[in-house]
Design a protein around this nucleic acid. Sequence first.
DNA 1: CATTAATCGAGACGGTACGTCTTGTCTTGCA
DNA 2: TGCAAGACAAGACGTACCGTCTCGATTAATG
Lengths: 199, 199, 199, 199
Amino acid sequence: MQEQAQRMGRPREGRVDTAIAKATLELLGEVGYARLTMDEVASRAGISKATIYRRHPSKQEMVFAVAIHGDELPIPDTGTLRGDLEQLARTIVGHLSGPATKALIGLLGEVDTDPGLADRFVSAFIEPERLGNTAMLEQAVRRGELARLPDMNLFHAMFGGTVLAWTLLARNAPEELPERLATAALAVLRDAELRAGST
Amino acid sequence: MQEQAQRMGRPREGRVDTAIAKATLELLGEVGYARLTMDEVASRAGISKATIYRRHPSKQEMVFAVAIHGDELPIPDTGTLRGDLEQLARTIVGHLSGPATKALIGLLGEVDTDPGLADRFVSAFIEPERLGNTAMLEQAVRRGELARLPDMNLFHAMFGGTVLAWTLLARNAPEELPERLATAALAVLRDAELRAGST
Amino acid sequence: MQEQAQRMGRPREGRVDTAIAKATLELLGEVGYARLTMDEVASRAGISKATIYRRHPSKQEMVFAVAIHGDELPIPDTGTLRGDLEQLARTIVGHLSGPATKALIGLLGEVDTDPGLADRFVSAFIEPERLGNTAMLEQAVRRGELARLPDMNLFHAMFGGTVLAWTLLARNAPEELPERLATAALAVLRDAELRAGST
Amino acid sequence: MQEQAQRMGRPREGRVDTAIAKATLELLGEVGYARLTMDEVASRAGISKATIYRRHPSKQEMVFAVAIHGDELPIPDTGTLRGDLEQLARTIVGHLSGPATKALIGLLGEVDTDPGLADRFVSAFIEPERLGNTAMLEQAVRRGELARLPDMNLFHAMFGGTVLAWTLLARNAPEELPERLATAALAVLRDAELRAGST
DNA sequence: CATTAATCGAGACGGTACGTCTTGTCTTGCA
DNA sequence: TGCAAGACAAGACGTACCGTCTCGATTAATG
């Protein structure tokens, strides 16, 4: 689709993007978003600051591009809904342990600075996850484990939000969550089925 | 409590604390945590920066003290568990609309910078809320609506996390949440009762 | 006269201005105007860049303030016009060997960048020198060595310009100039006397 | 002269040199040496930066080559020494009004950066002018207006230096200089004759 | 009533990161 | 090979913010 983008002049070096991403993720992991500096990213990537700014207009955008990049969570397929729920919880928990989370939280704190960043968040981070959740539950419907899709807005907020609060706010042990969350989610889904059936 | 603190010299002016709080909350609302500057707070409060720093050791601590200040959510008491759950959801949603949220998120992004801030968070924000939740469910137990308390860690993470994700991340309409969340929470609680009873 | 300048807040430290001047002159001497960097000035002066910029709005202005500062050449008074001329030539030659000259030339190259800098030059550098020249020749008139003042514009341009071209452009030996210049200047002055007398 | 330079591949386009010179002189006139950028020169010339750097090793050299290019001032020949002096003054004044002057001053400010630039200056700018001056005065000797050549170092510094100071530093009206300078120069020359004769 | 000790407004200061700009080099593909 | 286009490394510029500091002027409690 974007084939018509004519190449003129020296093409950008792929190595650069890789190096920026590597350095950024490293630093996010080591010192977090607030103390990540562009000079240090450039230094570690072995490139110059100007080269970073040719690709990303600001620190925010760079971190966003590197750390959020529409992750496309893999849709779990364990054979049972309960297994899928546990699997998904595990995946999200895993994600929230990597450097991406520090990026996520740091950027969230600067949403007010850059109008439009909020929308970018929704479309790059929230929306794909929501679609993944939907696909997972549609699978369950096809398997006959669910009669219909529940209120996806609520399900999505509940599932992701619980993981967030459990690990980042309450700082509970991550490995203890998936099983419990799966149980709770199943309860909600079954209850919704009954409620819908009786209406 | 710390009355024994000897007073010598000129006493602090109460007006100052009020002005700091007012200016801080204003700015949090207008530009968010990241773009709130100490100079601007001082300027709006009509005081000097040194005066702020005499009370609060850093920007983080100031915002923390002003915006988080262990709110002691009032324990809802509507007569029914379902009513209480809706009421609580409404209260939390309300809180997350004020400037306190911007403070919360901004500070969260600087947890890596200041070790110990995380603990402060837990003790000033998470723990009181957890206790409130517990009190609310104990009420339901006394009323006979629940046989016993559920896994409070999970309940708390789920309840608060869902509100957070619904309003801040997904940016759904706040007023649509309380009823749905109460339904979901009830489903989880009832399911846990059954599961516990059969064990 | 500027007594009404109310002092509020912490007063500026005199040490800072001294340190800036010292570091700037040192660097002008070592690497010249173009390669003098604000970071290095700050570093050598043991102060921060912000402190420099509080006093001087740009590199240009800083160098200007430090190196040009209306030097008020001392008016020579050797007893004879010829002696005074030689003395003055020696003084100017001496000045053009210090770091101030590198500043002068470097700034001259950036006159186009900052409109108004040209005027500042004239009033801080040219005008005082012209007045000094005038005072010197008035002395000669009082002594009876001259009947009247010559065309001061021409005299000034000739005297200063010759020193400039001799040392900076042609790069001749500085010590050989004063005597020759005094002779030439005397010739011009005497010739002007004759010409004026016969008119 | 260097015709033996092997030509391989595509020959250089003459149009390019013209365009570089045109753009450079334009920019020197508009914004001066310091704010002239290589990118803007390339852009205006409709060529690429690499093409400039294939011809000129640096900004300094480019400006030098374009603006100074050993002008070979035409030796005036009006029939009288006084006429020649006025004529020469007029020529120099004319030169110092064009973009060449901004180049001259700008480059002078970077002499410290590039050792050797000073020598280039002398050989490309000072020396030819000195030779021109000498030729002019030899003409006067042949005509019998002078008995012998004066101290050419001094004469040259005085003549050129006066024009420089008059127009660039003092910023006097250029058209008022030639007649006055001719008179002064004549006075110096005549005085030197007397002095030499009496020795 | 004078002393004392802390407070306050104002703003200078050191440190540090940001994002921009310019120079001179290098790498494509086309002619 | 020459050239247009433009990416790249290096590094200076001027701005912004934080948290500390130094003034001089208050303002109670104490001696």
